Amino acid sequence: MIDHAHDLASVQEATDRLLTAVAKLDNASVARPSRLPDWTVGHVLAHLARNADALTNVLDGHRMYASGEARDADIARDAPRPLDTQLTDLRESDARFRARGAEPADWTRTVELRNGVTDTAARVPFRRWGEVELHHVDLGIGYELEDLPEEFTEREIDFLAARFLAHPDVPATRITDGTRAWHTGRQASRPEVTVTGRPADLLGWLAGRRGEAVLDVSGGTLPALPPL
């Protein structure tokens, strides 16, 4: 069962780690490239702040973003801001999200995210936790997939494997770290491909952040996954 209160506490811990690390940067660092194509460090920080507000909208029963174009425009607008402004915005938007999450609510209700995706309200804090952890890695400032909390890594692998389950363009795939196993892709009586690797590397592949070089693939080639 999803424990939204536990996940909200994990969001706070992850955000505190992020803010502590980013506070050691300078204004010049905001303009340098991140690990995401065409995005600077400032773009990633702006996205994290706006995503917190967007998920607050979701919990309030509103549209996550006014539109895809508005989302992109807000990130582009906020990306060049000085470091202290970025930090304040991220801290305050995170506080708004967690305050909304702490209010009494029906956590079994269905909420709508982007592109018509729906989920239970109780899973929204975990989705926010994923945003903070993975984008901390994307900043390229010394926090790596191997540094992610073990609980988060395992649950995010679960989440992403389920996201691609029954996807017609992904072959039936068994994913394993040698101890645990997950399945994704098309439904079949037996997997077409087996992907083996360390948890951090498996997560990196599922999240579009690492490729075949760090994984052992048998039965075929490493499946190409749809974008998140």
Rank of each mutant, 00 (worst) to 15 (best):
D3H: 13
D3Y: 04
A5V: 11
L8V: 09
A9H: 10
S10D: 04
V11A: 03
Q12H: 00
E13R: 15
D16Q: 07
L18C: 09
T20P: 13
T20G: 08
D26P: 01
A28H: 01
S29I: 06
R32W: 07
D38H: 09
T40E: 03
H43S: 12
L48V: 11
A49T: 06
A54Q: 00
H62N: 12
H62C: 12
M64V: 10
Y65I: 06
R71S: 08
A73E: 07
D74T: 05
I75E: 01
P82I: 00
T85I: 08
Q86D: 05
L87K: 03
E92A: 06
E92T: 12
D94W: 02
A95C: 13
R96L: 15
R96H: 13
F97L: 12
R98E: 04
P104L: 01
D106A: 05
T108M: 13
R109Y: 06
V111R: 12
E112S: 08
E112D: 02
E112H: 11
N115P: 08
G116H: 01
V117D: 07
D119A: 15
T120V: 09
F126T: 11
G130R: 09
V132P: 07
V132D: 04
D138A: 13
D138V: 00
I141Y: 04
D147C: 14
P149Q: 03
F152N: 09
E156K: 12
F159P: 10
A162K: 13
A162R: 04
F164S: 08
H167S: 09
D169A: 06
T173A: 01
T176G: 01
A181S: 14
Q187D: 06
S189A: 14
R198H: 12
A200P: 00
D201T: 05
D201C: 08
L203R: 11
G204C: 12
L206K: 08
A207V: 07
G211Y: 05
E212D: 04
V214P: 05
V214N: 00
L215E: 06
V217M: 07
G220S: 01
L228G: 10
